[in-house]
């Protein structure tokens, strides 16, 4: 199905990503963000698919804890589409600085599209009087990236939204997300991964600064 785009790309987060969290975007960055936002909205053809599943057997402590108390799961996949990648390849040659800004903005846009998609699914789940946790993606906490394959197969994501997985486990188109949400008859919130099981705990800049990735 076609997914909705947000009104705008979150400028505050975008600027933070571009400046490594060190400061506010200057005039030049703002100009580039304006340009890239236009290009991204022009190129993006966001598509998504989801399915209900009784299978809660995923690899990783953190995802299992996230699904505690849940009786079923929603599997989801979303992508901004191929044209976003095509434009990036061109920008990298034409204007590398714009390429960097565009690339970051595209990742953010994929997140935002997925946020909206998740809320749509949540509304449908809640209509049935059920509850749903937030989404949890392979690669987060200690859930291996290889679990992407399982999600994509269950979702028939190649046929439905044109999402493929390369031999080395890259999702192509690049700006794509797969995720799992738990559902239950009783209220559930899910729990975020903690630094303890995170694969990146030793070098995480946020952690060094005394923060976690939950502090947006």
């Amino acid at each position: 199905m076609e997914l909705k785009l947000p009104e705008r790309i979150d400028r505050e987060r975008w600027a933070r990503m571009l400046t490594g969290g060190r400061g506010e975007a200057g005039e030049r960055e703002t100009l580039l963000m304006d340009e890239c936002e236009k290009m991204l909205f022009d190129a993006a053809r966001p598509k998504g698919t989801y399915a209900f599943s009784d299978d809660l057997s995923f690899e990783g402590k953190s995802i299992r804890r996230h699904l505690e108390g849940c009786t079923a799961a929603v599997l989801m996949a979303a992508t901004l589409g191929r044209a976003v990648d095509d434009r990036l390849m061109r920008l990298e040659v034409r204007d590398l600085a714009a390429g960097v800004v565009y690339d970051t903005g595209a990742s953010l846009l994929a997140e935002q599209v997925c946020d909206i998609f998740e809320e749509e699914i949540r509304a449908r789940v809640e209509e049935e009087g059920r509850y749903m946790t937030g989404r949890f993606s392979p690669g987060y906490g200690d859930m291996p990236l290889t679990q992407q394959r399982k999600l994509m197969q269950a979702l028939d994501a190649e046929r439905r939204i044109g999402l493929t997985l390369s031999e080395s486990g890259l999702m192509i188109p690049l700006k794509s997300i797969t995720a799992v949400c738990g559902t239950s008859d009783r209220p559930v919130t899910g729990s975020l991964a903690t630094c303890d099981e995170c694969a990146l705990r030793s070098e995480c800049e946020l952690r060094k600064a005394g923060k976690t990735c939950a502090d947006k």
């Binding site: 571009l18 490594g20 060190r22 400061g23 030049r28 960055e29 204007d95 600085a97 714009a98």
Partner: peptide
């Protein structure tokens, strides 16, 4: 030193 950000550095390099 964090006075200049990546996009500007790339523009300068280009």
């Amino acid at each position: 030193t964090g006075k200049i950000f990546l996009p500007q550095m790339i523009q300068a390099a280009t």
